[in-house]
Amino acid sequence: MPSRAMIGSIRALCFVAASFCLVAFEAQASKLFITNERDNTVTVLDGESLSVIKTIPVGERPRGIAITPDHKEVLVCDGDADDITIIDTDTLAVTGTLETGPDPETLALSPAGDIIYVSNENDSMVTVLDKATGKVIARVPVGIEPEGLAVSDDGRIVVDVSESTSMAHFIDTQSWKVIANVLVDTRPRIAEFTPDRKQIWVSSEIGGTVSIIDSASRKVTRKIGFDIAGIRPELITPVGVRFTLDGKTAFVALGRANRVGVIDTANYEVKRYLLVGQRVWQLAFNADGSRLYAVNGLTNDVSVIDVAKLDVLKSVPVGRLPWGIAIKP
């Protein structure tokens, strides 16, 4: 995706050769897709202007959302409809649904985009779907209330966290067996590989920590806590975790603390807390990593964070109880 400066120059050129550039710019426009749990919709924002392009009705209780590796489709978990809605990222039309089994909360895709992993929150399963046919490849029993999913670069390992069992489960994608279970702090929500793939960071909502699991030994090597002046420790409820492309900085959404923690991954110190909206849940970067978007469930908005300056620029209203976010570059 072009940087802001580049877009500026493209616009300047467009002034001269309007018709050609308009097409070129349209094709490159980035889009933000946000699930609105209460509204049963996905809000689509223009990546540049942040204005609403479209509000797309999906199934009931949309939460988890992911974009395919080719960026052509966005997949949305419809918890109470027991399916996934497929959205074409160009036309913004709903092009189909896939059955998932009960209460899909989150999903993740294989690196090639051909396999979909779904956490079935109500029946303690990870359902594995063939994306092309929608057929169930495997159903893997995990702990109670499975939620966040992370897939290794080579697609060999899927990490699933179960909220009520307080564990990260490592699923082998050859045998479809759980090969390791790692105890973390109470109510884990999200698992995320570091860009170098050496670690998996797991946020624990009630525990108030992020556990760092070594990918090779599958042991917790460190826990990061948060301490915010004027905020009760019990209100610090970590959920979304994202790393900058260079892996040097981690951002952690702190839920009811209404802040995003900024962590230096060299020394694991929290260097800044950014004030965002209420009950901040999931996070996503734009393509060049210059902007981080934080989804605020209770204030129905998305905070826009300048990653270089660590500054919250503005907030953009979306639907009710926004939950997850996916970005088309």
Binding site: S164, T186, R187, I206, G207, G208, E234, L235, T237, R256
Partner: peptide
Amino acid sequence: FEVAGFKGEG
């Protein structure tokens, strides 16, 4: 010690 009981905090 803390236990999770669906109250948003330990």
